[in-house]
């Protein structure tokens, strides 16, 4: 499971897909492709985007659902919690302390 997660995150295009899904969850493959090409200048084929989504889905970061005859992709950031559970982040500094 952890390997799937790190593999999924180890690719810039897949991280960009997560960024776009974070802005708006519930996108069709068409919308994801439109965002990658027009906003990020990524000229990758629909098939390649579909393969990236399969990797993200295997890691649990993307979930798909059907509504009518359409397939939508939702972001699920829950698996990321495993990273901070394994290597806890330092506590957030108290803003009052930092002014000293």
């Amino acid at each position: 499971m952890a390997d799937d997660l790190f593999k999924a995150l180890a690719d810039a295009t897949r991280r960009t897909i997560l960024d776009e899904l974070a802005e708006r969850s519930g996108q069709t493959l068409f919308e994801i492709c439109a965002r990658l090409s027009t906003r990020h200048g990524l000229g990758i084929s629909r098939q390649a985007v579909s393969q990236h989504l399969t990797v993200l889905e295997a890691a649990g970061l993307v979930e798909t659902r059907r509504e009518g005859r359409c397939k939508f992709h939702d972001l699920n950031t829950a698996p990321l919690r495993r990273i901070t559970e394994r290597w806890p982040a330092p506590p957030v500094p108290n803003p009052e302390d930092s002014t000293r």
Binding site: R24, Q27, T28, F30, E31, A34, R35, T38, R39, G68, C70, F72
Partner: peptide, 19 residues
């Protein structure tokens, strides 16, 4: 009307997709 893509700014044009 059901939209499968809400309005999205993509460079110089805005698009949306409906059923």
């Amino acid at each position: 009307v059901r939209f499968t893509q809400k309005p999205l700014e993509t460079g110089p044009v805005t698009t949306a997709v409906l059923d």
